[in-house]
Amino acid sequence: MKIPNLETSRLLLKKVVNEDQQNIYRGLSHPEVIKYYGVSYSTFKETEEQMRWYSNLEKSGAGRWWSIRVKETEEFCGAIGINDHHPEHNKAEIGFWLLPQFWGRGLIQEAAESLIHHLFEDLKLNRLEAYVEAANSKSSRVLEKLGFIHEGTMRDSEIKNGEFIDVKIYARLNR
């Protein structure tokens, strides 16, 4: 299925393409971005793995990701998308990240509202899930503003930097 461009008053959401690799590397190697993100890369070359992941998600139907860009300049801000798409259950997992210079402007909320509308209206998803490290209060707040409900906390569910961490699960239903 084709990944459509999405637009808001301030943003353009475009399919992540190979030409975005430098920007993806900038984000997924930035210490502040990856602090609570499950993926990180220390070299530009390593980021090829992430680019293959985006492509494979789309080909398999398991997800799709968009670059977030400032509408007027098309400056890259971050990325947003879904993975673990299960059409048989009409659900998927949403994820997002933003370069620090764009934090605090409501851009993730704006991009997510547009994406959620597309996912619920065009793809007819019934449920969107989000998994957030318990210490990531900013992402939790964004999800709550977007109407996601905290359904629970999975205690000691992942290991990060040699330590167990708790992960919160949020969900929003298409109602």
Rank of each mutant, 00 (worst) to 15 (best):
E58S: 10
F44P: 03
K35D: 04
L57V: 08
G27I: 07
E49N: 12
R52S: 08
R52A: 07
E46T: 01
S42K: 15
L57H: 09
S40D: 11
L57S: 09
L28A: 01
Q50N: 08
G38E: 09
N56W: 04
P31D: 10
E58Y: 09
S42V: 05
I34H: 01
H30S: 12
Y41P: 03
I34Y: 04
N56Q: 13
Y54P: 11
R26F: 03
K45N: 06
K45C: 00
Y41S: 01
E58C: 06
T47F: 02
G38R: 03
I34S: 05
P31W: 05
G27M: 14
H30F: 10
R52Q: 07
E46K: 14
Q50W: 00
E48R: 13
L57F: 08
Y54K: 10
S29Q: 05
H30A: 05
F44T: 02
W53P: 00
S29V: 09
Y37H: 11
R26E: 13
Y41A: 03
K35T: 10
Y36K: 08
E46Q: 15
E32M: 08
Y37A: 12
Y54C: 12
Y54N: 11
E49R: 12
W53V: 08
T47G: 04
S40I: 04
Y54T: 12
Q50H: 12
E58D: 06
Y36G: 09
S40T: 09
T43L: 04
N56V: 06
S55G: 11
W53M: 09
S40E: 13
V39N: 12
E48T: 01
W53T: 08
R52P: 00
S55F: 08
Y41F: 10
M51I: 12
K45H: 04
S42Y: 07
Y37T: 14
M51P: 11
G27Y: 01
E46S: 12
L57M: 13
T43R: 14
V39S: 14
L28Y: 13
P31K: 10
V39K: 14
T43F: 04
E58F: 07
V33H: 04
I34C: 10
Y36E: 13
S42P: 00
K45G: 00
T43D: 01
G38Q: 07
G38N: 13
G38T: 14
R52V: 09
I34Q: 05
T47C: 10
I34N: 03
Y36S: 14
E32D: 15
R26Q: 14
K35M: 07
T47S: 13
Y37V: 15
N56H: 11
T43E: 01
P31H: 03
S29A: 04
N56S: 07
H30R: 07
Y36P: 15
M51R: 06
S40L: 02
E58T: 03
K35W: 00
E48G: 00
V33L: 06
R52H: 04
H30K: 04
T47L: 07
